[in-house]
Amino acid sequence: MSHDGETQRFGFAFEDRYRPLLGLLGIRPGTCELTVDDDLLRVRFGRWLVLSPRRNVAGAELSGPYSPLKGIGVRVSLADRGLTFGSDTRQGVCIRFHRPVSGGEPLGVLRHPALTVTVEEPARLAGLLASR
């Protein structure tokens, strides 16, 4: 697990069949990364960015598989305003927040109570975020 002060990095898992579509949006392995340390959770997904104090993370669970319509790209759920940064339909991590975060649109008006990410090593991320 995490050592105090150490930044943990997670790349996003990319399903080959969705790479061309995601690439048109600027979403590529080189433009996507989740980092977490003792103070901050930072998620970059192409031009989209979510920042949250680590203490704002309420929990994290494994989720998936997803349908391509619900799991690929940047998506805001109409049901609960949850945000998805998806590049793979197999498995991801749903991160819940105490206070909703911005990141789904450029003005930061819409707030999201949860963020689903399709990172590599989803079980490691869920365990890391649940360990606090």
Rank of each mutant, 00 (worst) to 15 (best):
F45R: 04
L22E: 11
P29K: 07
L22A: 10
E33C: 12
F12C: 11
R28L: 13
G64W: 06
E33V: 13
G26I: 10
L34N: 07
G64A: 04
N56E: 10
D39W: 03
R19L: 12
L62M: 11
T35A: 05
L51I: 01
A58M: 03
R55W: 04
V43K: 06
D37T: 09
V57I: 11
V36N: 02
G46A: 02
R28G: 00
P29V: 10
W48M: 09
R44D: 13
G26C: 03
R19S: 05
D16R: 14
W48K: 13
R54V: 10
D39P: 02
G26F: 03
A58R: 14
R55F: 02
R17C: 14
W48N: 12
P29D: 11
G23T: 08
P20M: 11
E61W: 04
P29Y: 05
I27C: 04
G11T: 10
L51Y: 09
D38F: 12
C32E: 01
L41A: 06
P65I: 10
V57S: 00
D38M: 09
F12L: 08
G64E: 06
R28H: 09
G64M: 11
C32V: 07
R17N: 11
L24Q: 14
R19T: 14
G23I: 05
R19D: 03
F45G: 02
L49K: 08
L21I: 13
R47A: 10
L21F: 13
R54D: 13
N56C: 01
C32D: 09
S52N: 03
L49H: 14
F45C: 05
G64V: 05
P53S: 13
G30R: 13
D37H: 05
G30I: 00
F45A: 00
V50W: 09
L25P: 00
C32F: 07
E61N: 08
L25Q: 14
C32R: 08
V43A: 12
S63T: 15
P53W: 07
Y66W: 14
F45T: 08
F45W: 05
V57M: 00
P53E: 15
F45P: 04
W48H: 15
P20V: 07
R28P: 00
S52W: 01
R54P: 10
V43C: 15
R54T: 15
S63A: 12
G64N: 08
C32N: 05
L41P: 10
G26S: 11
P53M: 06
A58V: 00
L25R: 11
G23R: 05
E15D: 15
F12Y: 14
L34R: 03
R28Y: 03
R19H: 06
I27F: 01
L21R: 14
L22Y: 08
G30W: 07
V43Q: 03
L34W: 08
G23F: 01
